[in-house]
């Protein structure tokens, strides 16, 4: 046991795992940022009215429903093989980024949509009567109120998503889980290696989860105070 531990907990190995953890964070941040933007565009397209934009609306709905209903692992493999068909030797990092963006925008679209739906309809109707364009209504009336609902849900999705990125290792992308597998393949005790990896994920995920809960409580309090005034 002590031998196994001293073999694993060397400076080099820890730096290796730390680099992996950095990549995990990078993938998460890329996914959630792109997801919020993509999710907003999808939610905006889904909320459009009238016949001319109908194909856009259906397209957005289909995108969200489809990518929310395919396991991330299958999406990852599909993107991987499709990318290899189009570009020989497609860089794996970008394969992971593309599949992450697909997944995140589909999930974030639902979060953004429910946030935008939380704004009372009479406000939007009043703005429509005053001849505001849809973009201005969204930008000046809906989003300033909806972000308080969107942000906590987005953070709790991020907490879930950090853990999903571990699957990217299956496509050969270097991140925390990949680093763990590499160490285990090098002959280090897999029990210790994966326990360490689990601990590392916990260290990333737990503060984020607590931050999410704090944010939710704080925004809820501020909203209630606003009501009273």
């Amino acid at each position: 046991m002590i031998d196994h531990m001293s073999a694993l907990f060397t400076l080099g190995n820890m730096q290796f795992l730390l680099r992996g953890a950095g990549m995990t964070l990078l993938l998460t941040v890329i996914g959630c940022t792109a997801g919020l933007i993509g999710g907003f565009l999808l939610a905006y397209a889904r909320g459009s009215k009238g016949t001319p934009t109908a194909p856009l609306r259906w397209g957005a709905t289909a995108f969200v429903e489809i990518f929310r209903r395919i396991p991330f692992l299958v999406t990852l493999f599909l993107v991987l093989y499709t990318a290899q068909m189009i570009v020989p030797r497609a860089p794996l990092f970008w394969v992971a980024v593309v599949s992450i963006c697909l997944l995140c925008s589909a999930y974030m679209a639902e979060i953004v949509r429910s946030g935008m739906e939380s704004v009372p309809a009479p406000q939007i109707e009043a703005a429509e009567v005053m001849n505001f364009s849809r973009w201005r209504i969204t930008w000046m009336i809906v989003l300033p109120q909806a972000w308080k609902v969107i942000l906590p849900s987005a953070v709790s999705y991020m907490v879930m998503f950090v853990k999903d990125t571990a699957l990217a290792s299956q496509a050969g992308v270097f991140e925390l889980m990949f680093a763990g597998k590499a160490l285990a393949n090098r002959g280090l005790d897999p029990f210790l290696v994966f326990a360490t990896v689990l601990f590392a994920y916990f260290v990333i995920s737990w503060p984020l989860a607590r931050f999410g809960r704090w944010l939710e409580a704080r925004l809820a309090r501020r909203t209630h105070e606003g009501d009273r005034r």
Binding site: V159, K163, A166, L167, M177, P190, F191, F194, S205, W206
Partner: peptide, 22 residues
């Protein structure tokens, strides 16, 4: 706290690849 902050995939690997050593 422990279960909701652990990736399922890593737990699965831990059980399947880590435990046999013990």
């Amino acid at each position: 706290t422990l279960t909701t902050n652990s990736p399922l995939f890593v737990v699965l690997f831990f059980l399947f690849n880590g435990l046999p050593n013990w």
